[in-house]
Design a binder for these strands. Structure first.
Length: 758
DNA sequence: ATTCTGAGCCAC
DNA sequence: AAACGTGGCTCAGAAT
């Protein structure tokens, strides 16, 4: 209601022409009296130290004043003209522009945009929807919590009929509207029609929203947001030419040449769409599906030129959307008693440590206030003085840990940091994120959240409820908070050595392939090959622990996969750089096919500016790989003249480090996603079964606790056979059963102990 | 008062 | 010179 009033008020503009000219006149009169003219004031204000944003605003106001469109506020006119006043005038200017934009939007509403308000209109629309092949769909809601918020309207773009409609169902306008229930019932044949395609921007949100209101949205064939990720995963990155986001409003200007204002810019920050007047709601909402449709056509055309990507998108990423909606909706149960008890333990210990640390460090702290143990800025100088040694930074692993044995204060600080991180980020924070509607905890899994194709997990950009959390970085200590529902258990299945198997397949390296064929540990196999010693001897120590050689091989392996320099490798292994270089040289000398593959990845990227994931399903564009290195003469490294050259070269280095990793991580993510789709298909056929989570190389299921050996075997088959690395490299999996996350026993043991207790 | 950035650290 | 890939969250401190 507020907004409607505002708009009406503002259309009867308070700063009418006569008033404006009066103000201009008043300002002019006072100008003579003042010691400073407006021109002088502007000169003074514009030479002040203003931020870029402020400076731009100031110029806008100056131009508007000169054009006579805005004058000084009468209340301010007696005072000296200040920057603050100019900025207040800018706010009025911006507000007028906003109103003008809204007025124009309504005035210029295209003829084929229609508001659907009556049963007759809806019945007619329904018939036309059923005659379409593909329709663009969007919902307008009260918020982004798909378990709590409600639909206030929905829009559709019908390409065959050339119509773009908005159906308000819960706007606070006085105009009578159709009820949501009636609309959903009438449109159900369309919404649930598998063969009538649906195109959306961020489809997971709308699928979940429709489901919440009791109507599945079937037949989604394209998501302009996820497909944009596939077409340009760097769209987020302005340094690589992206627009900085994957929002429809940001993509439309770039790819369709259509200017598009954001919701916030048009309606204000915390505006509710249901308060937007219907004529305005129509043009805004219908434009959304119209743009979605046009973006779809554009994307479709471009992806068709990359048929392997198109095939992957349609057969994996699109079906996956439904899988993730289910996975997220299933959610988690947390053991709040566990969290409370554990949290109290942590607080108690943190308090003790905090008191001791403050007592020790206060004499070395310069500030007036008590030293803040969480501030690296305060802690570094104080701690340096306390131990009599200048610390370069406060990095726990690199800087503090090596000094732990010598200085009790550092040992205590490390324990303190550990505990406070654990409690503030996980143990205390998670219990507060329970969803008010479902009473469960729901994380977000973004299937296109990374540039390589892995999932990211966390909260929604637009989410103001603070209920989201990253489910993929829960530390070992926090995982037991997550418990299986009553009568169920969690079954975790990982891809054993997923990325190394992937490398074995992509490179064709026989040393690696043989390791997997013989079901041997690849690190031990590499160690055996490298040190020319028997496999058993380098695999496990007599006490069952991992050998030094195997551990070292794992470090080197991962280092290489991620493009680590010899310098860093030496640091990590505790040897000289020369030794590290030799070590790597010999190791990879013993695996020529792998070495050739690594080199080929870089060469390909240098030539083409991108690399492929498996089966050319996905590209990772690294345009910086094509740049030519700039020469920096010896001894000039610290010359400021070469700052840009250094930056330039480090971009190239970074791009080349990304190539191999992107191929491996990208291909592995495809394996995980395909397997998830198969796993989901299996779950929907089994009462009580659901997918619970995925953590990159791992799937976790929620299943009835009386699940059978046969069903466990089904899970194994799904893991091993849904996506294979060619014919030569077998997959591997370990399956475990848990009542609490992270406290698993091997599935065989689970069945054995069950039989024994019977 | 709100938003942004960097340091640091959790996961794979 | 920099030196390990992909993410997200919290806190401090600065910027707006």
């Amino acid at each position: 209601m507020d907004l409607t009033l505002n708009i009406q008020l503002n259309l009867r503009n308070p700063t009418s022409d006569t008033e404006t000219s009066e103000r201009v006149k008043a300002a002019g009169n006072r100008k003579k009296a003042a010691t400073e003219t407006i021109e002088e004031a502007w000169a003074r204000i514009l030479t002040m130290k203003n931020s870029d944003a402020d400076q731009a605003k100031l110029y806008e106001v100056k131009a508007a004043m000169q054009a006579g469109t805005i004058g000084r506020f009468p209340a301010d006119a007696s005072k000296r003209f200040s920057k603050a006043e100019a900025l207040r005038m800018h706010r009025e200017l911006a507000e007028r522009q906003r109103e003008e934009t809204l007025r124009r939007m309504v005035e210029e509403t295209p003829d084929n945009y229609e508001l659907i308000l009556t049963r007759e209109q809806l019945v007619d629309l329904s018939a036309h929807l059923m005659a379409e092949d593909i329709v663009a769909v969007d919902t307008e809601t009260t918020g982004v919590d798909v378990y709590t918020d409600v639909i206030v309207g929905m829009s559709f773009s019908l390409p065959n009929a050339d119509r773009h409609v908005y159906i308000p169902v819960d706007h606070s306008a006085e105009t009578p509207q159709l009820s949501l229930e009636y609309v959903l019932n009438t449109l159900r044949p369309f919404l649930q029609h598998e063969a009538i395609g649906k195109v959306l921007h961020n489809a997971m949100f709308d699928i979940a929203m429709f489901r919440r209101h009791g109507s599945d949205l079937k037949g989604v064939v394209w998501d302009t947001m996820t497909s944009m990720h596939l077409l340009n995963e760097n769209e987020n990155d302005r340094a690589l030419g992206g627009v900085g986001s994957f929002k429809l409003k940001d993509l439309a200007p770039k790819y369709l040449g259509v200017a598009s204002d954001t919701f916030d810019a048009l309606f204000g920050k915390n505006a509710q769409f249901r308060e937007v007047p219907l004529d305005l709601a129509l043009v805004y909402a219908a434009k959304d599906t119209h743009l979605t449709w046009r973006l779809y056509q554009f994307q479709r055309e471009h992806m068709a030129k990359m048929p392997t990507i198109l095939e992957y998108y349609q057969s994996v990423e699109v079906p996956l959307l439904y899988v993730i909606v289910d996975l997220e909706a299933n959610g988690y149960i947390l053991d709040l008693d566990f969290a409370k008890e554990y949290g109290e333990q942590l607080h108690k210990r943190a308090k003790e440590l905090s008191a001791e640390l403050i007592a020790t460090l206060t004499p070395y702290h310069d500030g007036e206030d008590l030293i803040n143990l969480n501030s690296t800025q305060q802690m570094r100088p104080a701690l340096s003085k306390a131990i009599g040694k200048e610390l370069p930074n406060m990095d726990a692993k690199k800087t503090l840990k090596p000094l732990k044995g010598e200085h009790d204060v550092i040992a205590k600080l490390l324990e303190y940091k550990n505990i406070t991180k654990l409690s503030s980020t996980y143990i205390d924070a998670l219990p507060l994120k329970q969803n008010p509607t479902t009473k469960r905890w729901h994380s977000r899994f973004n299937p296109m959240g990374t540039v390589t194709g892995r999932f990211s997990s966390g909260k929604d950009e637009e989410d103001k409820t603070d209920q989201g959390f990253n489910a993929q970085n829960q530390p070992q200590e926090a995982r037991p908070m997550f418990v299986a529902p009553p009568g169920k258990v969690l079954v975790g299945a990982d891809f054993k050595a997923q990325e190394i198997r992937c490398v074995a397949y992509l490179s064709g390296e026989p040393v690696l392939i043989d390791a997997f064929l013989e079901e041997r540990d690849p690190y031990a196999m590499m160690a055996s090959n490298f040190y020319k010693r028997p496999y058993e001897e380098v695999n496990k120590n007599p006490d069952g622990s991992d050998t030094k050689e195997r551990k070292q091989m794992k470090v080197v392996w991962l280092a290489t996969l991620y493009g680590m320099s010899d310098y860093s490798l030496a640091e990590m292994l505790g040897v000289s750089k020369k030794e590290a270089t030799e070590f790597k040289g010999e190791l990879f000398g013993s695996m020529p096919k792998l070495s050739a593959w690594l080199a080929a990845n870089d060469e390909f990227a240098k030539k083409h500016g991108f690399v492929w994931a498996d089966k050319q399903a996905r590209k990772r564009r690294v345009p910086d790989a094509k740049l030519k290195r700039k020469h920096i003469p010896y001894g000039k490294w610290n010359d400021p003249k070469y700052e840009d050259a250094k930056k330039h070269n480090s971009r190239i280095g970074r791009a080349l480090r990304q190539t191999t990793n992107a191929r491996v991580q990208g291909s592995s993510s495809i394996q995980t996603k395909v397997t998830m789709i198969r796993a989901h298909e299996y779950c929907v056929k089994k009462p009580g079964w659901s997918l619970w989570a995925t953590v990159h190389d791992e799937l976790i299921f929620e299943v009835p606790e009386d699940f059978t050996r046969e069903e466990a075997q089904d899970i194994r088959n799904i893991m091993l056979n849904s996506y294979r690395w060619g014919d030569d490299v077998p997959n591997g999996t370990d399956i475990e059963v848990m009542r609490r996350w992270g406290e698993g026993i091997p599935v065989e043991e689970w069945f054995k102990s069950k039989e024994e207790s019977e």
